[in-house]
Every structure is written in C-alpha cells, then in structure tokens.
C-alpha cells in the first residue's frame, strides 16, 4: 500500500517536472502569435537586399518586409515583429524548437528540407539561381558562349557543382579556378585570373557593386540552377502555412491589380470582385484564414505590394538593381503566380 502511494507520488512529481513535449503542436502557431501579440521571425545574419540592419539598426530587406506584412496580417500591426538572426546551421533547429514562428531566411526549398527537416514551404518570395559575371569588354552576351572559359569558383560551394553540371549538359569545356573563400574568389576574378565568376545571381549583383569599377562587369542573363528561396514554417500546421502562402499571393494579386501602399485606400470602393475580396470589402477570405477581414489591406498598407517590396530592396529602387527576371509576375513572363483568391 505504502509502495503504491510512493510510486503514485513519484509519478505525479515526474509528470510535474517533465517538460511538456507535445505542447508545440497542441495550439496553432497563429493562435500563439496572436496571444503573444508579436511575430517572431527568423532572418539571416546579414544579407544585402534580404535582411540587413541599417545605420539605426532597423532591419531592411525583402525577407524582413515579408515578416512585417505577416505581422500586419496576423496581428494587425506591422511593427509587432521580433527579428531573430539565425545562422545557416541554426535555422532548422530554431524553427523545430519553436523559437521562431516563421523562417524568412533565404532558404532554398528542397525535397529533404520539406520532408526530413520537418518544414513546409508554400511561398517562394525570390527565385534565385546561379548566374555568371563576365567583363563587359569581353563581348560575351550569353552563358552558351562560355565554352573553354576559365571560371572562378568557391571550393565546395553549390556553385562549383552546378557549373560542372551545366557545362557537362551543354557539352562544353571550362577551366575551374577555385579558392577557399568567396572574397578570395571575387578578388581573383577582378584581378583577371579568370574569364568569369559564378555564384547565386542575387549575390553576384552585390559583389559586383563592391568592385572597383562595377560598370565594367555584366551578369549574363542565363540562370543555370534552381534556387527557390521560400518562406518556411513548421510542418503540420496547415492554418499557419496557408496564411504564409496566401499573404504572398495577396501581395502578388495587389501588384497585378496596381494596388500600392499609397493608393490602396482608393481601391476600397473598387467594383472589381477580386479586389473587393482581397481588401475584405466583401466575402470572408480573412475568416477562412483565421485572421481579420482587413488582413491583406493592413499588409499592403505596411509594406506595399510584392513589386514595391522588390523594387525597394533588390530592384531599381535599391543600390543592387537586380532585374525582376524570374521574379516578374506571371502576366509579365515571370514565375510569380497567384492562384485565384476566392
């Protein structure tokens, strides 16, 4: 009898002190975020155009703007975001442990990350891919003309593998010149050691700007690998992943309809049924997503449409001046496509 009392007490004690492992999945992320009144957003530790603190320490970039939009949609206030800088190694552990609600950290959507790492990717906020930088006076206009060229590459990078694949597939030859770090690689290219330098195209534009004479180098139009940088959320919470996806789609639809941060109020009286549903004038889209009616309106008010976000951080309005390319709307020949909002 006594033994049973003791073991019962021990069991109760164990229950009390054992961490509640399952609690992450019991309540939805959206409910947690709304209860907390703050979105915790995992971003990079500094990448130009995507997430980088300015002189006052405010985060600027496409990824951080997306988080602000998500906070506006989920909580109603774009300022209620806590940015948590994560290194590439840290990022998956951070989202698995529930330290961050969403991962907007230039993460390539791959099969293993979608399955083994327990993440869900629904919205691709930037289609990146590997490009080639060449000297403008070389007269090269296409990567197909690079046969026999020497190419500066960083050792062990995906760029090294992709280049090999690309040239093999095209039946062309090239001479790889590899270096241990990317800054060494860029320096070597700049000093004329190779005909071309290859890296992710978003990085190429930033690296070109740091060169002594940026105008003397051009990025070739071909993108030879697929690097869809997507917003990651924890697997198994479809309400939350729906919201992250449809927020991105909403910003695309806004761009397609010409709705911007400045003119969004004038569209509240629009007769276009999709715009009326988007801005919450009619229908129950917000309700279906579990947020307020004006979720998209608040997001657009905070950061503008996708095109504005792009221009401000990466495109013509930024020093990087990366052309829209694959990231143009579907209606303009790009890949950014939104399913119908109804």
């Amino acid at each position: 009898m006594k033994v049973r009392i003791y073991s019962a007490a021990l069991a109760a004690l164990t229950m009390a002190i054992t961490p509640n492992w399952g609690s992450a999945h019991e309540s939805s992320t959206l409910a947690k975020v709304r209860a907390r009144g703050e979105l915790i957003c995992g971003v990079g530790t500094g990448l130009a155009g995507f997430a980088l603190p300015d002189s006052d320490g405010n985060w600027q970039g496409l990824d951080t703007d997306y988080c602000r939009a998500l906070a506006a949609a989920a909580i109603g206030d774009a300022r209620k975001v806590k940015f948590v800088p994560l290194t590439a190694k840290d990022r998956f552990a951070a989202i698995q442990a529930g330290q961050v609600d969403v991962l907007a950290r230039t993460t390539t959507w791959t099969l293993s990350r979608d399955t083994a790492n327990g993440l869900d990717f629904r919205a691709v906020d930037f289609y990146d891919g590997q490009g080639f930088l060449v000297r403008a006076d070389s007269g090269l206009t296409s990567a197909a003309e690079l046969d026999g060229a020497s190419i500066c590459l960083t050792q062990g990078s995906t760029a090294e593998l992709n280049t090999s694949d690309y040239f093999r597939a095209k039946g062309m030859k090239y001479k790889p010149v590899t270096f241990a770090t990317s800054s060494e690689t860029v320096k070597a290219y700049e000093s004329g050691r190779c005909d071309s330098y290859s890296n992710d195209s978003s990085a190429l534009y930033g690296e070109r700007r740091r060169m002594a004479e940026p105008d003397k180098h051009v990025v070739l139009p071909e993108i030879v690998s697929r690097e869809p940088l997507a917003i990651g959320v924890l697997q198994g919470d479809s309400q939350w992943s729906d919201l992250t996806a449809w927020l991105h789609f909403a910003l695309l639809i806004a761009e397609d309809n010409g709705i911007t941060r400045d003119n969004v109020e004038t569209y509240l009286t629009s007769e276009n049924p999709e715009i009326r549903r988007l801005l919450g004038v009619e229908g129950n889209v917000g309700e279906l997503l579990g947020v307020n009616k004006d979720w998209a309106l608040r997001a657009i008010r905070a950061v503008g449409n996708y095109g504005e976000m792009y221009d401000r951080n990466l495109g013509s309005g930024s020093p990087l001046k990366i052309p829209r390319g694959l990231n143009a709307l579907w209606s303009k020949g790009g890949l950014q496509y939104a399913p119908p909002l109804r």
């Binding site: 500094g46 300015d54 800088p85 700007r209 940026p214 930024s318």
Partner: peptide
C-alpha cells in the same frame, strides 16, 4: 546570431549603399 561589435562591422560592410572596394 548575436550581433557583437565585430558582427555589426561584418553586416555593415555588405550594405550595398556602402559598396566600394
């Protein structure tokens, strides 16, 4: 992921507004 003194320099130096050799 904590921005100490050296990390702030690391992040500031990649700012495209201040891109120079």
């Amino acid at each position: 992921g904590i921005f100490d003194f050296l990390s702030t320099i690391e992040t500031a130096r990649i700012d495209p507004r201040w891109a120079a050799p």
